[in-house]
Design a binder for these strands. Structure first.
Lengths: 193, 193
DNA sequence: GCCAGTTTGGAACGATCGTTCAAAACAAGG
DNA sequence: CCTTGTTTTGAACGATCGTTCCAAACTGGC
């Protein structure tokens, strides 16, 4: 019905996000985005002003759904120690159970846009800190319930896990080798003992 | 003199490489490359056929100079155990002593181009394997000279170090935090004990 | 059945993209 | 001093870029 939006914001952002996730910011044209979202050029500009703002909204959508909600969910479904390992195992699979693009949009963006775009950089930084905090909180909780060694200093351990996790994201997007992927997830496990 | 080249291949590739390293493949235009290299449009096309080939030559140049020669050098200047740590400390500084762009062109390329460009993907994969082998060879050598625990399985250890190393490259390009960087290099050290 | 308020489709903008090309500049060899 | 073979230069190509705009399509409320 023409007097109210005929599309859902979440759907459009989800589709735009996938396009950016697959190809990157620069390689995704507005024509690609029109085709990917299924809505009209004019409607995109009316709703998101320009390509850069659409990207930022798509990135926020990714952060909400594929980062924050995802971490919350595996935090609820697992014990603290297993939540950490579940995050690694999910990243090790590279692509989600749905046909998600390889890797992680936040990591791609950290390399492609962060150095030249302060707004993006600050957002990506905050998101990565929250991943670190996810590791930190679960390490502390696991130390309380006795499944992680209490002598471990939780903050640097969380930061080292973040490093390992980001490396995993790089490997799974380029040319994943089972052996290397497994070695990294095993190392994460080892670090908790 | 017009009957012989007035520019050095190595210089041109070094300059083109820096442009790609700084901005990425898609965001670097041929006009940028003309300005960066200082040689003419026609000369670039005569020597490198097109933008994609120029990029591949620039990537090979990076791999030769900033990856292979660099690893060889720190391998010669350090004991095996210290060579590994020196690699991490260099990556932790983010940018070399010269004014190199942040991060690592191979890692940037792994995320931006590998998923859609088989030639690039295979090249990046081979380069990353050689980084892994650098860790592997030095772990084994350090185990022989007694500076690394002999019970460590060198191959998975090298792969885990590669993961940590790539994560470090991601963090240093976006928004490096001293604390997180240090935690990662410390973790590399811990893994060798 | 007309008006209000949006969405829609597509044409069109100037700018820039990667690429091509032809003419000018040049110095050794004859 | 002209020929030869390159390099250099900058104009120019069609395509596509991000963005703007307007007329057509549409259905609720009046």
């Amino acid at each position: 019905m023409p007097w109210e939006k005929s599309y859902s914001d979440a759907d459009v952002l989800e589709r735009a996000m996938r396009a950016f996730w697959t190809r990157g910011y620069e390689a995704t044209s507005m024509s690609d985005l029109v085709a990917a979202t299924g809505i009209n050029r004019g409607s995109i500009y009316a709703a998101y002003t320009n390509k850069h703002r659409l990207f930022i909204e798509a990135l926020r959508h990714y952060d909400r759904v594929h980062r924050a909600e995802f971490l919350t969910r595996i935090g609820e479904e697992n014990s603290p120690r297993e939540a950490i390992l579940a995050a690694f195992e999910s990243a090790a699979r590279g692509t989600g159970s749905d046909g998600s693009p390889a890797g992680c949009l936040l990591v791609n963006t950290a390399l492609e846009l962060s150095p030249h775009d302060e707004e993006v950089r600050d957002f990506v930084d905050a998101a990565l800190r929250q991943v670190e905090d996810f590791f930190f909180d679960n390490i502390e909780a696991a130390q309380r319930d006795g499944t992680v060694n209490k002598t471990i200093d939780a903050r640097p351990a969380a930061q080292a896990l973040l490093g390992l996790f980001l490396g995993l994201r790089v490997l799974t997007r380029s040319k994943p080798r089972r052996q290397a992927i497994d070695a990294i997830t095993s190392q994460a496990r080892t670090m908790l003992e």
